[in-house]
Nucleic acid binder design. Structure first.
Lengths: 231, 231
DNA sequence: TATTTAATCAATACAGTGTATCGACATGAG
DNA sequence: CTCATGTCGATACACTGTATTGATTAAATA
């Protein structure tokens, strides 16, 4: 019995009208401001001028709130009606991946939720639908499923990596490149031990590439891999 | 100033001798038994017959404990000395990915930590070193960095996905295939709405493939993509 | 060796958490 | 107008991470 199975309680002329949408919106606000850890049922309820226990009419547990928040973000990720299926699987997947990344930049806590549990909300399903439909008639179901799974795994991992280093940068106030050299004297000291010669070369000689560009380039590698199996 | 920067306190003839290794071992035990959420500083300390505050001589914060736990797992992931670099980048990367997955099956909480913050512990660095060294002389630094980043992103995402559905299965006591059909009546009902025709086809017609096999196959796709750019 | 200094320890305390319980209350039905 | 249903919010509980504080111990000095 998940959130998606239980109907919302009927609205009542209460001190403050309440529904899941409002609850989730408040939670998303809090998370945008202070990360997932800033989301507590008490604070969410407070934003809605309600007692904490009031929420338990709409949610069975805090995890369910996270599920709802995630699905709310999937709503943002869905393609506009306009940009239809006419563009082929590759463009569809690429666009979906990039929108997901953009959503994660707007809502950094998305990185903590992505891939954390199966997403079965209506918007997550709709996103899956769009993606799968883009392969209609192009390959057998299992190949398509594998293709989508592979790309999604990459997207999840890449977003987590990017957000993780974004947070680390923010915590130290340095760019990633500088941060790698200055992060505590630790990394520098480790590299100077000579125990990581290859790694040292990469840290020193590597080019600092824009995260968005890296994401797109790597994504293209993965899409190429898929293309090779679809054709 | 991170964990890696601070030396361990000198051992003292205390009621119970303590060091980071022992602390991390206790934390890992707890996490193996009850997941990350079962790890509290109080419980870790209790396992070591120590007061909770005692740990703060060895850790500055709970997050640091997680960092140490993650690095402890990286130690398990490192290749045995024997199986050296002679096998080429592809085998090196593949083996690393599979060992990472195996570690995640032993320590499911790894899925929650992977990609969560930059890993700069000695073992994580050693793992990076081995991986990067496998490309020595085969391509320019930036290409190699991109290759490794892509594969790692896939591995992170794929492991999270697998552990997530493993947990969901366990929670409902059903196989994934059955679970998709039975998960709350929700998914079934959603699919029956006809709003997700492509998705419905995949759920009904898709073959239930062993997770390990899927991981390996998809990994090979990604490795192919890398190969195409290295050669 | 005697005394001071420094460090480590455990206890206490605090503010916060998710959620179970339960009495008060308001709403709809009869 | 009365009664039953079901929601609401207060209280309570067990637990969390960690700041603070004195006591106790070991090391350094005289």
């Amino acid at each position: 019995m998940t959130v998606w199975d239980r109907p919302e309680p009927q609205p009542r002329p209460a001190p403050v009208p309440l529904d899941r949408e409002r609850i989730v919106a408040a939670a998303v606000e809090l998370a945008d401001e202070g990360g997932l850890e800033a989301v507590s049922l008490r604070k969410v309820a407070a934003r809605l001028d309600a007692g904490p226990m009031r929420l338990y009419g709409y949610l069975a547990t805090k995890e369910e709130l996270f599920d709802l928040m995630l699905d709310a973000v999937y709503a943002e990720i869905l393609p506009r009606e306009a940009e239809g299926q006419a563009r082929g699987w590759r463009e569809t997947l690429r666009a979906h991946a990039r929108r997901t990344r953009q959503a994660a930049l707007r809502h950094e806590w998305l990185a903590d939720l992505l891939g954390g549990r199966p997403s079965l909300g209506p918007n997550a399903l709709a996103a899956a639908e769009v993606t799968l439909a883009a392969f209609d008639g192009l390959a057998d179901v299992d190949t398509v499923a594998r293709a989508v799974a592979t790309v999604n795994a990459y997207v999840t991992g890449a977003i987590r990596r990017e957000i993780a280093s974004l947070r680390a940068e923010r915590a130290t106030g340095l760019s990633e490149h500088d941060w790698q050299r200055a992060h505590g004297p630790h990394l520098t000291r480790m590299l100077d031990t000579g125990r990581y010669p290859a790694l040292a070369r990469f840290v020193h000689e590597g080019t600092e590439t824009d995260a968005g560009t890296s994401f797109d380039l790597e994504l293209d590698w993965v899409l190429d891999a898929v293309a090779a199996r679809i054709a």
